[in-house]
Structure formats: structure tokens, C-alpha cells
Simulated scan of single mutants.
Amino acid sequence: MRFCIEAFANASVREVWCAHHNPAIAQRWVRSDDWFADRCEIDARTSGAFRVRIRSIGSQAAYEIEGVYVELRPPDLSVQILDGDMHVRTEFVSEGEGTRIRQYVESNAMSDPQAQQACWQGVLNNFAAYFTGRGQNRARK
């Protein structure tokens, strides 16, 4: 199964790239109505690992998402493999006064693809919303 999602962020490609690979910032936008990230570790380099612990809102249920970066070309491209099977290619493209973020997600073991796509889109929308109204408080690295 494969799908593509996208969102627009009101920030430069460099700012968006830095925020996307900053664990303290990622912990704020990796969330939904039902769960949130309570821990995030990112080693943003080729062959570097990342780990996000997801916790259910209203219970103690938690699970971890782990992966490795297989290609990084700052500030334009990030390719990663999650949990050994899911491949994610994220492109950051300058567009007008901001950045278009496109994610191509592919997995052979994806259950309920429409729900997965909706969840990924929601998280990407949270990321783009991080830049709305942030002014000079935008992520810098």
C-alpha cells in the first residue's frame, strides 16, 4: 500500500527542516485527538535512529515507533524506514512565502490504509500548524 499526503507551512524550507528533525518540537506536533508523543529521540543523520513513544490519552497504554534515516539531504529530503517495513519519503519544497511538505508512505503490512492515511495527514497538519502565528519563535537549529 502506498499513499501521498501534503501540507503547507508558513516558514522557510530551512526552518521547516529544522523543526521536523528537532525532538523537542516533534514531541509537540506528533499527536492526534486520541494519543500524544510523550518522548521523542532523533539522531538526524544518515543511518541515525529515531524513537517516539506514543501514549493514549486517558489511559496508560503506550507503544513505540522506531526507525532509521536512510537518506538525509538538508533541507530538502528525509527518507526513513519505520519499524522495519514502512518507508517514508518527506520532501520539503519552497513555495511562495513558505514550504510545501510532501510525504510518500509505503508499507506492505498496513492495516486499514484509509485510516492510516487519515492519521498521517492529521499529524502532518499538526506539524504545518506549528508555524501558524509563531512569528519569531520559529524553530531554529
Rank of each mutant, 00 (worst) to 15 (best):
L77Q: 01
Q103S: 12
N10D: 10
S78P: 04
G98C: 03
A62Y: 04
Y104V: 13
D33P: 03
E6M: 05
F36T: 15
D38T: 03
F8T: 07
E97M: 13
V16R: 00
W29S: 13
L72E: 14
Q117I: 09
V123Q: 01
D33R: 12
Q116K: 04
R100N: 04
I101T: 10
A37I: 07
V93D: 13
W35Q: 07
R100M: 00
I54Y: 09
G67D: 02
N125F: 05
F8P: 02
Y104P: 04
A61K: 10
A61M: 14
Y63A: 11
S12T: 11
C40N: 14
Q116W: 11
A26K: 04
A109N: 06
E6R: 07
C40D: 15
E97K: 07
N10K: 08
W17L: 12
M86P: 08
L82A: 09
F36N: 13
F50H: 02
A11P: 00
R39P: 08
F8L: 06
R73W: 08
A24I: 09
I81F: 01
S107L: 00
R39K: 15
A128R: 02
V52M: 13
D38M: 06
G67P: 00
D83S: 07
A49V: 15
Y69F: 12
N125E: 14
A118L: 08
Y130W: 07
R73P: 08
I101W: 02
A19I: 02
Y104E: 13
R100P: 06
S59Q: 03
V93W: 06
D33M: 10
Q116T: 05
E66R: 08
A109R: 02
R31K: 14
Q103P: 03
Y130P: 14
P74V: 01
S32G: 07
P113C: 01
C119T: 14
R102Y: 01
V13M: 00
T90S: 02
Y130E: 05
Q117P: 12
V30S: 14
V123N: 08
S78K: 07
S47N: 15
A26V: 09
A49G: 09
